[in-house]
Design a binder for these strands. Structure first.
Lengths: 353, 353
DNA sequence: CTGTTAGCGCATTCAG
DNA sequence: CTGAATGCGCTAACAG
């Protein structure tokens, strides 16, 4: 590896090709784009391109066409399963359309998020997709001022383009289920209300579903972070409340709590039930396997990308199907209080097959 | 949202600013770059920029400077924790240097990997980082032909720039540990040998460490995929071999096996020990918490990025510190066969605090 | 310190 | 169908 430095330029331009093929630059350009060329010259140009190994200069091209074929993506963080799936989905639809994504990470900071959007916009991306931690008035202002499509995911706001799972419905679904299983007292282990989607909507949906049509239901709240450890640290407080079921706002929260219960000899679901939201794969390998409402983040990525593409083509929100399905995944972590005796079935890897 | 289509151009150019400020274009350009300007004009230009909301055109600038400040990153897949951490690390060092990353995913296909590298190169990125699934002769050829730095991670190959964890050392470390814990018969649940790093080196290292200096050691192999389920499906076969310890080539493999054992009433570590590699967070919340050799993927990302930066600046391999530390994380899943009675300690969230 | 002059590589008029 | 000419917006000599 004696090579030192990489200052070599791309040297072969459209001009070189033209000369070698004995045609004009414009003819080569036409060959590369539309194709108004005689078959004969077509052949010559093709040959010249092969011989020279010509590759058109990205920047010169973009400077002319005013189209970068680049989509900017702003993410709150990288090291999370959901973000990974989301990106996988986005890529899956963007790539066949000839778009590529350029990624910026905001480390859960709203300010950084704005900064990143600014950067992307300067870079000349064709559109921006933001998996936001919270849509502020400033976000709205930019979406309106800038002349490029901006789509937010993860949060909702009426004045901008956005796409998110129905957290209220997810919470509601879980609430109804637990009510039907005969539970009357739940602790909702939630996150900060500054996260409107998870901290407020999901919780409110749960409470509604759980309490619907009865007056003897009780829901207590305990706030925790998004990670295992902070949930684990709140578990004692939760236990003191002595509910029949603990509802973690995310699967990770539930996993931390499960671990704590295990250490204290509290049996799940015999002594207490635990559920989560998200449908992460690991929820299926822990024991008991976690009952949860699963979201399809990859599908969300695909929809987000389609939405962006539509926006780019001058179509509006109406023309994209924005429904995000939910999947209720019943596994082993909930006890049916209606039954006299509880015999949780140990299916082989429930929810994984 | 009545807006339809986004065809507006960026209209204010350096020329407009120059006219408004009553200076020449070059003066504005200087203001933007070096800064050989009188204070007086500096003020006028600044004002003009603010008033017009001028933003320099990325493509025009790059066309001149021949520098994109873009690093291409080719990933095998997105939905994995390790990739997330790697990216986090890369971003952390690239961003302060004014670089941004553009991401392409190969879906575990070597061919796609090559294709993606090609695309990035055409885009005019300044360098390419490939988290490769296998370095082929074609990879080597490109690294040499193209006049831009290419760095491979995850795999090793003498003729190209690369950076990876020391899989052999990791395996060895685990082997030694289990030997010292009195284990004589292990099953290594590994992956395909086409993955040289994990499938071959890690395994060989383990065998070496485990068998070192004795003749009464036995290691059997069982092949599995990288995911929970495929490991789970091989667990019965592993169990039939009746080892005292199962070594999963990755934590996920071990987690799948743990689940199976749980279902069958096989107690870990009392009846059998289980260990993994990777140090994923979830290893700490399952029970028993998984003993493992942890890798710092974020650090790896940071090192990779630094390496790339050095390459860009004409420095070679020598000038980057490539040592990747390993962390042995002793938790609860291994029984000490030297002790008469085994009393695994249940620390609070071992390895998480 | 500053304005003038040239292109960077390509796509696109406009006449042929 | 094709070539010559023009300029995208910016930076970098070059003379002042």
């Amino acid at each position: 590896m004696g090579k030192l430095g990489y200052y070599m330029e791309q040297k072969v331009t459209i001009k070189d090709v033209a000369e070698l093929a004995g045609v004009s630059k414009s003819t080569v350009s036409r060959y590369l784009n539309n194709g108004y060329i005689s078959v004969e010259k077509q052949v010559r140009v093709r040959k010249a391109i092969e011989e020279t190994g010509f590759q058109s200069n990205f920047f010169a091209k973009r400077l002319k066409t005013r189209e970068s074929k680049l989509i900017g993506i702003v993410l709150p963080r990288m090291d999370s399963v959901t973000v990974g799936k989301l990106l996988a989905g986005i890529t899956r639809v963007l790539e066949p359309e000839g778009y590529q994504s350029i990624l910026l990470v905001s480390q859960l900071s709203g300010e950084k998020e704005l900064e990143n959007m600014q950067k992307l916009q300067q870079q000349g991306v064709d559109a921006i997709l933001v998996d936001s931690v919270g849509i502020t008035p400033e976000h709205v202002r930019r979406a309106k001022e800038w002349s490029l499509p901006i789509l937010y995911t993860g949060q909702q706001q009426a004045e901008v383009h956005c796409l998110k799972i129905d957290d209220a419905a997810a919470g509601h679904r879980m609430g109804v289920y637990l009510r039907q299983m005969g539970h009357k007292h739940a602790v909702f282990a939630g996150v900060t209300e500054s996260d409107e989607a998870v901290g407020i909507e999901r919780k409110a949906g749960f409470v509604a579903g759980f309490c619907e049509g009865r007056t003897d239901a009780q829901v207590d709240f305990v706030e925790t972070g998004f990670d295992f450890l902070s949930a684990y640290n709140q578990a004692e407080e939760i236990r003191k409340l002595a509910p029949s079921v603990v509802v973690g706002a995310t699967d990770n929260i539930s996993l931390g709590i499960l671990r704590y219960f295990h250490e204290r000899g509290v049996h799940v679901p015999e002594d207490i039930s635990v559920v989560g939201f998200g449908g992460y794969d690991v929820g299926a390998v822990v024991y008991p396997a976690l009952t949860t409402v699963a979201f399809d983040y990859e599908l969300m990525g695909m929809k987000a990308a389609s939405y962006i593409l539509n926006l780019l083509r001058g179509k509006g929100r109406e023309e994209t199907n924005l429904d995000m399905p939910l999947f209720f995944v019943e596994r082993e972590s909930v006890r049916d209080l209606n039954a006299a005796v509880d015999e949780p079935s140990l299916n082989a890897m429930p929810g994984m097959a």
